[in-house]
Amino acid sequence: MLDIVIEARRASLAPGMDVKRILPFRLRRMVGPFIFMDHAGPVNFQPQISSSIDVLPHPHIGLSTVSYLFGGQVTHRDSLGVEQIIRPGEVNWMTAGSGIAHSERFEDPAALAGGTLEMLQTWVALPEKDEETQPSFENYKTGQLPVFTDTGVWMRLIAGEAYGLKNTVKTHSSLFYLHLVLDKGTRFALPQEHAERGIYIAKGSIELSGVTYTAGMMLVFIKGADPVIFARESSILMLLGGEPLGERHIWWNFVSSRKERIEQAKADWKEGRILLPPTDNSEFIPLPEDKSRPASGPAPEVLS
């Protein structure tokens, strides 16, 4: 029934900003089209250190970034000129395609003073035919994301289709992404219409076939399995998956079906051919030095 259990590893995005990194994992690079997943927080910040945790402008190709908050707020700026504050329950969906740069900054003193930041970011690899699509950005408000409730169950569809739910979030391939809250003692089954499916435990613990799994773990299931999970306590889960896209190479913030495209993206960033956000262009993250790993290896210093 279970294909693999992935335990989150610690990664650092900036001083004072450590995250739990779930994907990619050396034994399981992707779940459906999802190739990257970070869970930041919950972390309390003092306003005077907010700038030290900012994620400076950095590039992406060949993917869509999906940002989703449990708490706090983040300001997104990108090379299209978009400036967007994302708040809990909303979705920031940025398609990098042929190349984009963006930053994520923590600028609101009211949100930081005694507040709690908690954010999930995933990357969705693009199908080969869409890898060089024009970059785009959309913010989806909570009212655009359907919610389903039942006894002991609350869930919001972030993107895709599952359990008869569908929304207007634009995707490029068949997938599902759900925020699920289960009360203690609730049983719940995964959707069956997708080839690859995973559960990330953001909070709490669940039981499957007599084994308990705790926060920071992702359970990935074999195709055709029909698992029913049991919430041992009140739990927050992220369900995701979809149809596999085939092999992808990932290096730093670049994803592609072709190694040579990764090399081109490295040169484009180094030579300034990927534009910085026009309202956030005084600093940026330089291309990392990485002489030991090929472009298809685990990403060095992967950023959101």
Rank of each mutant, 00 (worst) to 15 (best):
G246P: 08
V211T: 14
P191R: 12
N253A: 04
I201Y: 09
A202G: 07
G99L: 03
E263F: 11
D54P: 04
G89Q: 05
A110D: 11
I4Y: 12
P15F: 09
S209C: 08
K270L: 03
R273W: 06
Y163D: 04
D150V: 05
G204L: 09
A8W: 11
P286M: 03
P57K: 03
S136L: 11
E132Q: 15
Q48E: 14
S173W: 10
D38C: 04
A225Y: 07
T75N: 00
A295M: 11
T95E: 08
T142R: 15
S79T: 02
P135C: 10
S256W: 05
M218G: 01
H58C: 01
Y213W: 14
G16D: 09
R197I: 01
A159W: 04
V211F: 10
E138R: 15
A267E: 13
A11C: 07
G16A: 10
L117P: 02
Q134T: 15
E243T: 13
Q264C: 03
L219Y: 10
S304Y: 03
K291F: 13
V19R: 12
L287R: 04
A231G: 01
K184Y: 07
T279G: 01
Q264N: 08
L237A: 02
L219N: 07
P135S: 11
R9Q: 15
K170A: 06
I236D: 13
T122V: 13
D54Q: 03
G198H: 10
D54R: 02
A110E: 12
A215I: 05
E161H: 14
S304R: 05
E7N: 15
E161R: 15
H194Q: 10
T116R: 14
E90S: 05
G41V: 04
A125S: 15
A101Y: 03
S52R: 10
E104T: 00
